[in-house]
Design a protein around this nucleic acid. Sequence first.
DNA 1: TATTGTTATACTCTATAACTATA
DNA 2: TATAGTTATAGAGTATAACAATA
Lengths: 171, 171
Amino acid sequence: MGKVKNHANKGDATLITADAVRRRAPKLQSGPLDYGQLKDITGFPLKVVWIIGYTLLVKHVDDPAITPQRVSMLELIGSNPGATQSQLGAALGLSRPATTLTIDFWQDRGCVDRRTEPKDRRSFGIHLTEEGERQLADLRQKVQMSDKALTANLSEDEIAQLRALLAKIHQ
Amino acid sequence: MGKVKNHANKGDATLITADAVRRRAPKLQSGPLDYGQLKDITGFPLKVVWIIGYTLLVKHVDDPAITPQRVSMLELIGSNPGATQSQLGAALGLSRPATTLTIDFWQDRGCVDRRTEPKDRRSFGIHLTEEGERQLADLRQKVQMSDKALTANLSEDEIAQLRALLAKIHQ
DNA sequence: TATTGTTATACTCTATAACTATA
DNA sequence: TATAGTTATAGAGTATAACAATA
């Protein structure tokens, strides 16, 4: 399978198939080597699939600076206007310095705004700018396309099953 | 090179539950923040579960220098005696320098052996030493325990389903 | 004193490129 | 020339600790 142009998107994004990135991830099967115990556990294929998903998103976004982690942060800011850095960092499992730098990244690109709130002047409320709203809307489409590419081999039912099983683990 | 603690009691591994590491990973639900679109894609919970699995393995192994990646390499060497570094690196998606350093790590610990094979003296055949066999046997138990902890909320059937769904993606 | 956020610093991991030795 | 592996170097990402401002 090759690349397919998607016409439904305003940003002229290209759909990248999982096939195109699969070779960069460990194969687990049909390679020249035996994966031994790694074939019989859940953790290893989980990592492989996550690498495929990560790589697909990076390719769909097509800006090496915009990593999945940064996308998650912008999504979180857009979905929680006025949240503090501590809240945002905790929600993504980031240390405070890492949170500062992730928000710096989006602020440097004019996408977010640190607003001092009078009730507690130690912290900021983080908000999207208009540019941030546009960026997030664009990224949401690319995230959806990327996720669709990741699960292209699965039916709707199977995707729902997979999500339910993952939820059982992380909940 | 950082010093790491020695394992005097190899059969004394402790089961660490997923609960104990869940707080370090993003929560996705019941937190104070709304995860927005991240709730509706497969890629994000996949990452969360992978972080949980990674953290569980690190805790079960209880030696910060022995990362899941290094465990995978030792497993691969044990399951493919005599494989070359290029083969091993390719099987794990590593660059050649990264492969060199990963094998250096196990050689420095007396676990693997680089043997020059007469048929092509540019490359080595990589083999486990006796110490490497012992180390791998120990790690295999810990990997199994860690994986069991990761999927503790799932029935045998559900684990099989999850593996089958992941396999459909990465195959 | 405790908390929010920033800065300084160091460490790990990785990749690209240059190098050696074999083929 | 091409390939296997090593070394040099630089970049990205992160964490811990020290710091400033505020509570």
